[in-house]
């Protein structure tokens, strides 16, 4: 084999390897080097509305907050490839009714998602709720509803990347911290 071709082949292969290393190690290093901006959610309890609070998932960014009244508001966290929305609104009714309302909302908005059977869920502070999951061609998701006195707390988690597992662990920890009046 001609020697210069061998070296050219080596240079080409090392370039491919270099590009892979940049993606695997370079981009995450760059990400760590870029300072977290004020949108980052500190790991301290935040009020969403009406006395409902949550500890944001670790490393989450707050993408959006809204407050349309003292007892109505929402917050959207971005955790890697996942988004975690928590909405609080006045509600008079029981838990199955609240659950059914959110399920209908998701089905009609998203069109083609599948909802699995609901399961019971309890936060560390003792708020009871119902949760289920959905999936779609471009994303998977989970939703949950909790009831606080006169309030419904709706939680929706969606993601569109293959490696959601890590983010889900952090989101689960955050959901467990939802509390009322503490």
């Amino acid at each position: 084999m001609v020697v210069h071709r061998w070296w050219r082949n080596l240079a080409g292969a090392l370039s491919v390897l270099g590009a892979l290393l940049i993606v695997v190690f370079g981009l995450p290093a760059l990400d760590r080097a870029v300072p977290v901006n004020p949108d980052a959610a500190a790991a301290q309890r935040r009020e969403v509305a009406g006395g409902v609070t949550v500890v944001p998932p670790s490393g989450a960014l707050i993408a959006k907050t809204s407050r349309s009244g003292p007892r109505e508001g929402s917050i959207l966290f971005l955790i890697g490839p996942a988004r975690f929305v928590m909405a609080v609104a006045p509600f008079k009714g029981d838990l199955p009714t609240a659950y059914s309302g959110l399920k209908t909302k998701i089905q009609s908005m998203r069109g083609y998602q599948v909802t699995a059977d609901e399961a019971r869920i309890v936060t560390k502070s003792g708020l009871h709720g119902l949760t289920a999951s959905f999936t779609a061609p471009g994303r998977t998701g989970r939703f949950a509803v909790f009831l606080a006195p006169g309030l419904a707390i709706e939680v929706t988690v969606t993601g569109s990347e293959a490696d959601l597992a890590q983010a889900l662990l952090r989101i689960d920890e955050s959901i467990a911290t939802i509390a009322y009046g503490n």
Partner: peptide
């Protein structure tokens, strides 16, 4: 697949930091 995961995650975070989390979402 295995190299895309950390790359996607980092670039998504960079997008959220440098543009806005809302845009990244």
């Amino acid at each position: 697949t295995t190299t895309a995961m950390p790359g996607n995650r980092a670039m998504l975070a960079l997008l959220a930091k440098t543009v806005s989390p809302d845009y990244a979402v």
